[in-house]
Design a protein around this nucleic acid. Structure first.
Lengths: 141, 141
DNA sequence: CTGTGTGCAAATTATTTGCAACCCT
DNA sequence: AGGGTTGCAAATAATTTGCACACAG
């Protein structure tokens, strides 16, 4: 991570009332810098080489914190929690074979009439199927 | 569970190549008999009084088995697996406060163009918000 | 009989909690 | 200096696995 990126992330963290610790900068750099969907474990596995003292616990806490500040979006698929670096509401597709996750533009729909009495806060939509790669690899066998 | 129900469930199980053991009949009676969304633990808690020897493990296996035969639908919400006695594809709403789950009619949509190369098998849609009860109990505080 | 199904215990995996030490601001 | 953060270890929780015994067909 170059100096400029680091400073930008530092600003982002501070702007949300969070201290800019090295651990947080590392996690933010990895997750916020480019579009991805990662689990806490994945983040930890990528970073603990460079930051040997980084604990998985800290990763969990930091990701939750970033989510609560609206910088990330939490995504539950197959019982595992992923964090999406795109905090805007949008749909997803997940390959049931290789577990790849794809972002899709949001496809807003009015809540059905059954929910008239509810106070709706959001909507999750996940398409499930075989991604192009898995699809061809399965059909040619 | 009366004798007739028991015999019908027995038939259902056998029709899917499953042995009709007392444990399975009890689980099937509880889950298939009336529309519900239950976790494995809930099923076990309800039944182990009447069937003290019933193990949680057997509940997990039986529910998975019923799902694989298309008699149930698996539903992941907040990292917990629920089994929906309605195996037909449909949408859901979940109250973020009391965790109540509501079935909604399915609202079929064509997959977006981004998924043209995929082989789409299904779609999950979950509305999130406050159910009528939680909504009023929160606003009157 | 024979293999499917069951119970028990232990293993796995994801996530949270408690707490003392640390260090960003 | 002081409280937000971190690391470590243990606690929780959901689910799976291995295996000997039991029983449905």
């Amino acid at each position: 991570m170059n100096a400029t990126t680091s400073e930008m992330l530092q600003q982002t963290l501070r702007a949300h009332g969070l201290r800019a610790t090295p651990q947080r900068l590392a996690i933010a750099a990895m997750v916020l810098a480019h579009p991805t969907h990662v689990s806490a474990r994945e983040v930890w596995q990528q970073l603990h080489h460079t930051y040997p003292s980084l604990s998985l616990n800290t990763v969990y806490q930091t990701l939750s914190l970033l989510e609560s500040k609206g910088l990330l979006q939490r995504l539950e698929i197959d019982g595992i929690t992923f964090f999406d670096s795109n905090p805007e509401p949008h749909d997803h597709a997940c390959c049931i074979r290789c577990k790849a996750i794809l972002d899709l533009p949001s496809n807003p729909v009015q809540p059905p009439s059954e929910l008239a009495e509810w106070h709706i806060l959001g909507e999750r939509r996940i398409w499930q199927g075989l991604c192009p790669a898995c699809r061809t690899s399965l059909s040619t066998r």
